[in-house]
Design a binder for these strands. Structure first.
Lengths: 190, 190
DNA sequence: CGTATATTTCAGGAAATTCTGAAATTACGA
DNA sequence: TCGTAATTTCAGAATTTCCTGAAATATACG
């Protein structure tokens, strides 16, 4: 791996982290390299820089593409595929979270809903179902919130994030003021 | 695996999901079983219910304990260790996120900070460093927000989540009203 | 078309991880 | 302190995942 120490450290760390998040080391490293690069990279570049076989890089890129983490680009006068990561880091976050939601959260919700339709046989199953309902409702609340946030402009999102829990002070005002421009905010049940 | 179909489905799904999140299948299943159970389980119960070796269960429980996902309990007149999952699902979420932060996010921030102290050699490294700074700042913003939320009472947290992006309407009022009970909310750069 | 170049597929080997059973250790009560 | 039951450790087997090179396929250009 013939990279400057700075870049190498990041790439290796990212590979390590990837494997803790269910992404394999190679794919993590490929992504890290593309993310840092100041120009689009082709498979040959990557294969050479990281010392992986050309076919491994190909599979890795395919996976990254399926996660919408890289973007295919064609340079004029060069017929090889070149890859970049989105410029805007928030776009990366949004894509990543969205893909995970689709692949992991949604199937889980479906499974939970299906089970909750069944009739419990005895007290054991009743308890189990109650626990599953808790989990279902929690996930639904979190994804509902997330999807609401996903709709917002990035700049607004950032403002809210920076405000943090101070937002709660504003929320407390609501009852005192009894007026919200644009409509009433529901606080009751889901 | 001698479990009712309801429970079995959940346990298997959870094992599968676990492995996509860097937790191994066995550990995921053990956790799922404990989570659903209406009574504390000992290692023997688990080993029998899931068909894993006793030692495998022991290792799994140890890992779950290190994640603070299970709680050791002693039943009177029984010297075996019994395990439960926290009653309150929000406690589970909080523990899990907190552990991941400590194990994965903090080391990443440290690595990024270290690299950002180095002096870039040439334009390639400059670009790479700029990218790393973006990532560093993003992660810091998100964890800052998260830690702020972590401090809040669960009931308040839920209220905020349910409000979703409607909170933004309240935020917009701020400027119009020019008063926030309890202090001024900072909006400027971090 | 034909050719050269780029990409993908995939079977099988390599590597990493998970799991087990036996042995060691620990914990507790008598 | 001893005996028993529970738990943990750990070397190696089993399994899974990953990676490679060779072959097949695709693509652009003349």
């Amino acid at each position: 791996m013939n990279l400057s120490p700075l870049i190498r450290t990041f790439v290796l760390h990212f590979g390590e982290m990837g494997s803790r998040w269910g992404i394999n080391r190679t794919v993590g490293q490929i992504y890290a390299l593309i993310y840092l690069s100041d120009r689009p990279l082709n498979a040959e570049d990557i294969s050479e820089a990281l010392g992986f076989s050309r076919s491994n890089v190909s599979m890795g890129l395919k996976e990254l593409d399926s996660w919408r983490l890289v973007r295919l680009k064609h340079l004029p006068g060069d017929r090889r595929d070149h890859f970049t990561a989105p410029e805007e880091i928030w776009e990366i976050v949004r894509n990543l979270v969205e893909e995970r939601r689709k692949r992991e959260i949604e199937p889980t919700l479906t499974m939970l809903r299906d089970i909750l339709l069944e009739t419990a046989q005895g007290p054991q199953e009743e308890h189990a179902q109650a626990r599953m309902r808790e989990m279902h409702d929690l996930i639904e609340m979190l994804t509902g919130w997330y999807q609401d946030m996903q709709k917002m402009e990035t700049t607004r999102l950032i403002q809210l994030l920076k405000l943090g829990s101070k937002i709660y002070k504003l929320y407390e005002m609501r009852d005192k003021l009894k007026l919200i421009p644009g409509g009433k905010a529901k606080t009751g049940g889901k």
